[in-house]
Amino acid sequence: MALVNASFVVLDAVEPEKLAVFYTELLDGEQTDISLDQVEIRGADGTRLAFRRDAGAIPPSWPRAENNQQVHLDFLVEDLDEAERRIIGLGGRALETKDMPGPYEERVYADPAGHSFTLRPVPSTTSE
């Protein structure tokens, strides 16, 4: 039996309820717990996130070095264009991604509170 079990990635936000709605919709999930200062969700695939109230939260300003991204989430998607439309519709925004290193096509976005996250295509299961 594990001594410690991983539980959540927690993102700070001025309005955690609004951020929870964004990710609940994005991940086709459900809110699993709401307290005065934190909202927890579980995505349809089991991804667990929490959003903690921090009245002084300052959005990361990636890619600027003076206030780097601090943490980011990666999500695998079947269709990058469809996922982008959904993100924008939910209030997210695209971030500058040209010259991004990496072996995959990827796109970087910010949620409504400014946290960055990356979309990557689901890896191919066919052998070449």
Rank of each mutant, 00 (worst) to 15 (best):
V122R: 10
P123F: 03
K98C: 02
D74E: 15
S35L: 06
A83H: 04
G46C: 09
L119N: 01
F22R: 03
E106A: 08
K98Y: 11
S61R: 05
R93K: 14
L73F: 11
V10G: 07
A113F: 01
G29M: 10
I58W: 09
G46S: 01
G29I: 10
S116D: 07
Y109F: 15
I41F: 07
N67H: 15
L76T: 13
G114H: 05
T32A: 02
A83F: 06
E17V: 05
D28S: 14
T24V: 00
P16S: 00
L80K: 07
E15R: 04
Q69D: 03
T47L: 12
E84H: 12
T125R: 15
L19E: 04
G29L: 06
D37S: 14
G92K: 01
D12S: 05
Q70S: 05
V77Y: 01
Y109D: 10
G114N: 11
G56M: 09
T97L: 14
S35P: 03
V10W: 04
R64M: 00
A113P: 03
Y23P: 08
G91K: 10
Y109Q: 03
E84Q: 14
D79G: 06
S116N: 03
A113L: 09
P121I: 08
G102C: 10
P60V: 02
G56L: 12
D33E: 15
T118P: 08
Y104E: 14
E105Y: 12
E105W: 11
A13S: 15
T97S: 15
D79C: 02
D28C: 09
V122E: 01
W62V: 04
F75C: 02
P60C: 09
D28W: 11
E82V: 14
A55Y: 11
T125N: 14
T32W: 01
T118S: 10
